[in-house]
């Protein structure tokens, strides 16, 4: 299996350069890829908006003006704040977008990261050891998958006090099986390979083997799934807000803005479309970065990123593929 080779080759292929040099190479690689660059810039921008947005626009985002509701976008008649129009209460859509980025990220990011980290480590562990550990882990995943997430959410609403931490918990638990199953599958396949056996006979401890040999092969797929999970989590979060868990108006998140704008999609499309676009752009940026990282992290693939971006790229590729 191809992945095996990568796992085998990696130690030999890439003699560990000093951390400083490695960092410099990564930067160079990144700068060479315009799309990945753009993705990083967008993500940095979203991050910055989340950091300082609420301080700068917090007041503007909640200021209602019932005499100027549903103003269409791309007009400066009401000032730059209304460049993206106003919502059904006359608030600036632009300011709300910026301010909402904080809540959105502070829910989506932890939810995705927790499910990714817990799911992948658990899955690799289960797949590596096989036997009862694997069996129990997979049945637990089956059980979680069989529960409607909404039921969990409603229970949380009734039993615990609603808070952002609870949404994160519900979302993370619901998504853990996805990573758990994917990581287990690949890890189980890998552990039967020769090089893992070899490492074992040399007395390498299992966590070390998982970290060095299993993780590099398993993680790229999981990163791809995780980056696309962003949008899913952002949109699901809004349906939980609808039940009264977590983010409540006048707090705002992109998901909640999309959900509220849904009612007026035909008469004031901008209210739902701009936050929706924000979700799409952020997710796509994360995916582009994930797919770049996948190439950059794979020693066997990294050369593709070092090629000059020109028409020759394709030719070079073909040549390489057809010896």
């Amino acid at each position: 299996m191809s992945t095996t080779r990568a796992g085998l080759d990696s130690p030999a292929d890439a003699p560990d350069p000093g951390p400083a040099i490695r960092r410099a190479t990564w930067w160079r690689l990144l700068l060479r890829d315009r799309f990945a660059c753009l993705a990083v810039v967008i993500l940095l921008f979203v991050g910055a908006a989340a950091l300082v947005g609420p301080m700068l626009f917090g007041d503007l985002a909640t200021r209602q003006n019932l005499r100027a509701v549903n103003r269409p976008p791309f007009s400066l008649d009401d000032g730059w704040a209304f460049l993206l129009g106003s919502d059904s209460l006359g608030r600036s859509v632009l300011a709300r977008l910026v301010v909402a980025s904080r809540t959105t990220l502070s829910v989506a990011l932890p939810a995705v990261v927790i499910s990714l980290v817990v799911g992948s480590i658990w899955g690799m562990w289960a797949g590596f050891h096989r036997g009862w550990r694997e069996n129990i882990s997979m049945r637990v995943a089956d059980v979680i998958l069989s529960f409607p997430a909404l039921l969990l959410a409603v229970v949380v609403l009734y039993v615990f006090s609603p808070s952002a931490a609870n949404i994160i918990l519900v979302l993370a638990i619901a998504r853990i099986p996805i990573y758990l199953r994917a990581a287990r599958a690949e890890s189980a396949e890998l552990q039967s390979r020769l090089f893992v056996d070899a490492a074992r006979t040399f007395g390498t401890r299992s966590w070390a083997i998982i970290g060095r040999h299993v993780a590099p092969t398993v993680l790229p797929t999981l990163f791809t799934v995780a980056s696309l999970d962003f949008c899913f989590v952002m949109l699901t979060e809004s349906s939980l807000s609808f039940l009264g868990i977590g983010i409540q108006p006048p707090d705002m998140s992109w998901g909640l803005m999309v959900a509220q704008g849904r009612q007026v999609l035909q008469s004031a499309w901008w209210i739902a479309v701009f936050p929706g676009l924000a979700i799409v752009v952020t997710t796509v940026s994360a995916t582009v970065l994930a797919s770049w990282a996948r190439l950059a992290m794979d020693p066997g693939q990294r050369w593709r990123l070092t090629l000059p971006r020109s028409r020759r790229a394709n030719k070079a590729l073909v040549k390489e593929v057809r010896p």
Binding site: Q64, S88, L89, S241, G244, Q248, P249, P250
Partner: peptide, 26 residues
């Protein structure tokens, strides 16, 4: 637009000098 209506009310009550929070439920 039930949630929006409550946001308007909240806004007015805060302006009048009260402290108000919203919880929208199923």
């Amino acid at each position: 637009k039930a949630a929006e209506a409550m946001e308007v009310v909240q806004n007015s009550l805060i302006e009048a000098g009260l402290s108000v929070k919203i919880e929208m439920l199923d």
